[in-house]
């Protein structure tokens, strides 16, 4: 019962709770409800931008963008974006980070 209920409600809840935003200077996410976590990674410190897509995500046309900084704790994950948004975002982030000099540490 609890399992079924959570299957029905959790995705909706996640969808309501999770937020992300990308400006020209930083990537920002908000995740979690009981343990809310805001993550901010400045554009100038981004090292890699990965786009991944699992088989299940593929069937729904979704993908995940992972933005890594030099810190082991600084990765920002944007889950469940639709495919076009994700690839456009990855491209934009890559361009923006290329444009910023420095070794990002």
């Amino acid at each position: 019962m609890i399992g079924l209920a959570s299957i029905a409600t959790l995705p909706v809840w996640w969808h309501r709770v999770h937020r992300w935003e990308v400006t020209d200077t930083a990537v920002y996410t908000l995740t979690g409800y009981f343990w809310r976590t805001w993550r901010i990674a400045p554009m100038s410190r981004i090292q890699t931008v990965d786009t991944t897509q699992g088989p299940l995500q593929h069937s729904f046309g979704l993908s995940t963008v992972v933005v890594t900084t030099a810190s082991s704790a600084g990765a920002v994950t944007l889950e469940g974006l639709d495919q076009e948004t994700a690839s456009a975002l990855a491209e934009r982030l890559t361009q923006l980070t290329d444009a910023t000099p420095g070794d990002a540490t």
């Binding site: 979690g32 409800y33 009981f34 343990w35 809310r36 976590t37 805001w38 993550r39 901010i40 990674a41 400045p42 410190r45 900084t69 030099a70 810190s71 704790a73 600084g74 920002v76 990002a104 540490t105």
Partner: peptide, 26 residues
Amino acid sequence: GIIGWRLTQSVFQKRMGLMTLDATTA
């Protein structure tokens, strides 16, 4: 050397008006 922020707030912290700030660094 700070290359990002991570702010966390559990429900308990929220009730008490507290927040934890994490400075991420390489």
